[in-house]
Simulated scan of single mutants.
Amino acid sequence: MKAFAIYALVALAEIGGCFAFWAWLRLGRSPWWAGAGTLSLIAFALLLTRIDASVAGRAFAAYGGIYIIASIAWMRVVEGARPDRWDLIGGAVCLAGAAIILLGPRTA
Protein backbone atom coordinates (compact mmCIF):
# COMPACT_ATOMS: atom_id res chain seq x y z
CA MET A 1 0.00 0.00 0.00
CA LYS A 2 2.94 2.35 0.69
CA ALA A 3 4.05 1.94 -2.92
CA PHE A 4 0.70 3.17 -4.24
CA ALA A 5 0.90 6.29 -2.05
CA ILE A 6 4.40 7.00 -3.36
CA TYR A 7 3.24 6.37 -6.92
CA ALA A 8 0.40 8.86 -6.41
CA LEU A 9 2.92 11.52 -5.37
CA VAL A 10 5.18 10.57 -8.28
CA ALA A 11 2.29 10.99 -10.72
CA LEU A 12 1.28 14.34 -9.25
CA ALA A 13 4.85 15.60 -9.57
CA GLU A 14 5.27 14.37 -13.15
CA ILE A 15 1.90 15.49 -14.47
CA GLY A 16 2.17 18.82 -12.66
CA GLY A 17 5.64 19.38 -14.09
CA CYS A 18 4.60 18.48 -17.62
CA PHE A 19 1.46 20.61 -17.34
CA ALA A 20 3.58 23.57 -16.22
CA PHE A 21 5.53 23.35 -19.48
CA TRP A 22 2.26 22.92 -21.39
CA ALA A 23 0.90 26.07 -19.71
CA TRP A 24 4.06 28.03 -20.57
CA LEU A 25 4.41 26.89 -24.17
CA ARG A 26 0.81 26.25 -25.24
CA LEU A 27 -1.27 28.50 -22.99
CA GLY A 28 1.04 31.51 -23.04
CA ARG A 29 1.77 31.56 -19.33
CA SER A 30 4.86 33.17 -17.83
CA PRO A 31 8.28 31.49 -18.28
CA TRP A 32 8.27 31.07 -14.50
CA TRP A 33 5.96 28.12 -15.13
CA ALA A 34 8.93 26.35 -16.76
CA GLY A 35 10.95 26.82 -13.58
CA ALA A 36 8.16 25.36 -11.48
CA GLY A 37 7.82 22.54 -13.99
CA THR A 38 11.53 21.76 -13.76
CA LEU A 39 11.37 21.55 -9.95
CA SER A 40 8.32 19.35 -10.14
CA LEU A 41 10.02 16.99 -12.59
CA ILE A 42 13.05 16.77 -10.32
CA ALA A 43 10.70 15.81 -7.47
CA PHE A 44 9.17 13.20 -9.78
CA ALA A 45 12.55 11.56 -10.39
CA LEU A 46 13.53 11.64 -6.73
CA LEU A 47 10.21 10.22 -5.57
CA LEU A 48 10.28 7.39 -8.11
CA THR A 49 13.53 6.12 -6.59
CA ARG A 50 11.64 5.56 -3.29
CA ILE A 51 9.68 2.63 -4.74
CA ASP A 52 10.74 -0.66 -3.18
CA ALA A 53 11.55 -2.79 -6.23
CA SER A 54 14.47 -5.06 -6.96
CA VAL A 55 15.10 -3.42 -10.35
CA ALA A 56 14.37 0.06 -11.67
CA GLY A 57 12.61 -1.18 -14.80
CA ARG A 58 9.95 -2.95 -12.75
CA ALA A 59 9.25 0.18 -10.71
CA PHE A 60 9.03 2.24 -13.91
CA ALA A 61 6.77 -0.29 -15.67
CA ALA A 62 4.34 -0.47 -12.76
CA TYR A 63 4.30 3.31 -12.59
CA GLY A 64 3.02 3.47 -16.16
CA GLY A 65 -0.43 2.27 -15.11
CA ILE A 66 -0.57 4.67 -12.20
CA TYR A 67 0.44 7.52 -14.50
CA ILE A 68 -2.41 6.79 -16.89
CA ILE A 69 -5.02 6.76 -14.12
CA ALA A 70 -3.58 9.96 -12.65
CA SER A 71 -3.63 11.61 -16.08
CA ILE A 72 -7.30 10.80 -16.50
CA ALA A 73 -8.01 12.21 -13.04
CA TRP A 74 -5.99 15.35 -13.91
CA MET A 75 -8.00 15.76 -17.10
CA ARG A 76 -11.20 15.70 -15.06
CA VAL A 77 -10.18 17.72 -12.01
CA VAL A 78 -7.76 20.30 -13.41
CA GLU A 79 -8.82 20.62 -17.03
CA GLY A 80 -12.53 20.04 -16.48
CA ALA A 81 -12.85 17.47 -19.30
CA ARG A 82 -15.01 14.48 -18.51
CA PRO A 83 -13.37 11.11 -19.29
CA ASP A 84 -15.42 8.88 -21.58
CA ARG A 85 -15.97 5.17 -21.07
CA TRP A 86 -12.94 4.31 -23.21
CA ASP A 87 -10.70 6.46 -21.03
CA LEU A 88 -12.02 4.66 -17.95
CA ILE A 89 -11.84 1.16 -19.42
CA GLY A 90 -8.31 1.74 -20.72
CA GLY A 91 -7.25 3.19 -17.38
CA ALA A 92 -8.64 0.18 -15.50
CA VAL A 93 -6.76 -2.22 -17.76
CA CYS A 94 -3.53 -0.28 -17.21
CA LEU A 95 -4.05 -0.15 -13.46
CA ALA A 96 -4.58 -3.92 -13.38
CA GLY A 97 -1.33 -4.36 -15.31
CA ALA A 98 0.53 -2.12 -12.87
CA ALA A 99 -0.81 -4.15 -9.93
CA ILE A 100 0.30 -7.41 -11.54
CA ILE A 101 3.80 -6.05 -12.14
CA LEU A 102 4.17 -4.54 -8.68
CA LEU A 103 2.44 -7.18 -6.56
CA GLY A 104 3.12 -10.38 -8.50
CA PRO A 105 4.96 -13.12 -6.62
CA ARG A 106 8.67 -13.26 -7.33
CA THR A 107 10.71 -16.43 -7.14
CA ALA A 108 14.05 -14.75 -6.69
Rank of each mutant, 00 (worst) to 15 (best):
I72S: 05
C94L: 14
G17I: 03
C18P: 01
G57W: 13
L12F: 08
L103T: 04
G57Q: 01
A11P: 09
I66F: 15
A108W: 09
L9Q: 03
A70V: 03
I15P: 01
Y67E: 12
G57F: 10
Y7T: 02
W86P: 01
R76F: 15
A20P: 02
L46S: 00
W86G: 05
A99Y: 10
L103R: 07
F21W: 09
A62M: 04
L102M: 13
R58H: 10
I66P: 07
A98L: 09
A36C: 05
G104D: 03
I89D: 02
A43Q: 00
A11F: 02
L41Y: 04
L48A: 06
A59V: 07
A92K: 09
E79S: 13
A23Y: 13
A61V: 05
I15C: 06
I6K: 03
L103A: 10
D87M: 06
R82N: 12
A20N: 02
I72N: 04
G97R: 12
A36F: 08
F21L: 06
G91D: 06
W33Q: 04
R106L: 10
A73H: 05
L103K: 05
M1I: 00
A56D: 08
D84N: 14
W86Q: 10
T38W: 00
P105F: 06
I15R: 00
C18R: 02
I100R: 00
M1K: 00
R76L: 15
P31A: 11
W24C: 11
T49E: 12
F60M: 11
